[in-house]
């Protein structure tokens, strides 16, 4: 049990640092920003209480905001997906039963399930974040394009991250 807390706390810190020190520097062609820190919210175990998901989404968003001059925007977007997560999980129920100690990851539930899950969550996050950042519908389609492209990019990064750091059972 301790192990779960420790693993998630370490992931929390590492993902924020990875986000602000490395990934914020690789935006490609001006609109590709992967936001991999939301992987933290994606991978919280199934039995995490709802309120804890919201509070920790708030904290992880706030942590990234502190560093990237976007006070409140990452926070708003990640609290929003923290709110959506239980609903999305119900919506895309897996054929496998959720067992005690499972996490919503590739290792436990397979790649196709995880892709569905992460694309929905990442898309929701990016829509909120990018429109908050621009704060107008003035450049609606340009922003929408950035949302789509960045979503693809973020999901790719998250999947690669999963394969890199998780051993097969």
């Amino acid at each position: 049990m301790n192990n779960v807390y420790l693993r998630n706390s370490v992931r929390f810190i590492l993902l924020i640092l990875l986000q602000v020190l490395v990934l914020d520097n690789i935006n490609f062609r001006g609109y590709l920003n992967p936001y991999i820190y939301i992987m933290f919210i994606l991978l919280l175990p199934f039995e995490t209480p709802d309120w804890f998901i919201l509070v920790s989404s708030f904290l992880v968003g706030f942590g990234v905001d502190l560093f990237s001059n976007t006070m409140g925007m990452h926070t708003a977007a990640s609290v929003f997906i923290g709110f959506c997560r239980p609903g999305v999980l119900r919506f895309i129920s897996s054929t496998r039963d959720y067992e005690q100690g499972m996490t919503p990851s590739i290792r436990d539930l397979g790649i196709s399930w995880f892709l569905k899950y992460s694309i929905i969550i990442v898309l929701l996050h990016h829509i909120v974040f990018f429109y908050l950042e621009v704060f107008s519908f003035h450049e609606f389609f340009y922003t929408f394009w950035r949302v789509i492209i960045s979503t693809i990019f973020t999901v790719i990064f998250i999947v690669i991250g999963q394969y890199l750091f998780y051993k097969k059972k």
């Binding site: 709802d50 309120w51 919201l54 509070v55 989404s57 708030f58 968003g61 905001d65 976007t70 006070m71 409140g72 925007m73 926070t75 708003a76 609290v79 929003f80 923290g82 709110f83 239980p86 908050l132």
Partner: peptide, 22 residues
């Protein structure tokens, strides 16, 4: 409905931050 209210509360915090700092 604590889950929903907690969500609203945290979003309000976030928007206060946006309004004050951006």
């Amino acid at each position: 409905y604590y889950f929903f209210f907690l969500f609203v509360l945290l979003e309000v915090f976030a928007f206060i931050m946006i309004a004050n700092n951006n």
